Lab assay of single mutants.
Amino acid sequence: TTQFTVHSPEQAEQWKEYAKQKGLEVHVQKKNGTWHVTIH
């Protein structure tokens, strides 16, 4: 599991796309103005 924080919805979307291409599961949670992205 990879977990990191991004600071814009655009970055979060890019990671979603990346994960989809790799066939991975991605979870994005918005918290205090940042987005926590978890890739399984």
Rank of each mutant, 00 (worst) to 15 (best):
T1A: 10
T1L: 13
T2M: 15
T2I: 15
Q3Y: 13
Q3L: 08
Q3G: 06
Q3E: 12
F4N: 02
F4S: 02
F4V: 07
F4Q: 02
T5F: 12
T5H: 08
T5N: 06
V6G: 02
V6H: 02
V6A: 05
H7D: 14
H7Q: 11
H7C: 06
S8P: 01
S8R: 04
S8D: 07
S8Y: 06
S8A: 04
S8Q: 04
P9K: 15
P9L: 15
P9W: 15
P9N: 11
P9S: 14
P9T: 09
P9E: 15
P9M: 15
P9V: 14
E10K: 07
E10P: 02
Q11D: 11
Q11I: 13
Q11F: 05
Q11C: 11
Q11W: 05
Q11A: 14
Q11S: 08
A12C: 07
A12K: 02
A12Y: 05
A12E: 02
E13L: 09
E13P: 01
E13I: 07
E13D: 09
E13T: 06
Q14G: 07
Q14M: 14
Q14V: 10
W15E: 02
W15C: 06
W15F: 05
W15Y: 05
W15M: 05
K16F: 09
K16P: 00
K16G: 04
K16Y: 11
K16A: 10
K16N: 04
K16W: 08
E17D: 09
E17I: 10
E17H: 08
E17R: 08
E17G: 04
E17A: 10
Y18D: 02
Y18P: 00
Y18M: 04
A19S: 04
A19K: 01
A19G: 14
A19T: 02
K20Y: 09
K20A: 11
K20T: 10
K20C: 03
K20H: 10
Q21P: 02
Q21L: 13
Q21V: 09
Q21I: 11
K22W: 14
K22S: 09
K22P: 03
K22H: 15
K22N: 14
K22L: 14
K22D: 03
G23M: 04
G23F: 04
G23Q: 05
G23I: 02
L24M: 07
L24P: 02
E25R: 12
E25K: 12
E25M: 11
E25V: 13
E25Y: 13
V26D: 00
V26W: 05
V26P: 01
V26Y: 11
V26F: 11
V26E: 00
H27W: 09
H27K: 08
H27S: 13
H27E: 12
H27L: 10
H27Y: 11
H27V: 11
V28I: 14
V28D: 01
V28P: 00
V28E: 01
V28H: 01
V28L: 05
V28A: 02
Q29R: 09
Q29L: 12
Q29F: 12
Q29P: 01
Q29M: 11
Q29I: 14
Q29T: 13
K30Y: 15
K30A: 10
K30H: 14
K30G: 06
K30Q: 13
K30N: 13
K30C: 12
K31P: 01
K31V: 15
N32T: 03
N32R: 05
N32L: 05
N32D: 13
G33I: 02
G33K: 05
G33Q: 05
G33R: 04
T34V: 15
T34L: 15
T34G: 11
T34R: 11
T34C: 06
W35K: 00
W35G: 00
W35D: 00
W35V: 02
H36C: 13
H36W: 14
H36D: 05
H36S: 08
H36M: 13
H36F: 14
H36Y: 14
H36Q: 14
V37W: 00
V37L: 04
V37H: 00
V37Y: 01
V37G: 01
T38A: 04
T38E: 05
T38P: 00
T38M: 07
T38V: 10
T38F: 07
I39N: 00
I39A: 00
I39Q: 00
H40F: 15
H40V: 13
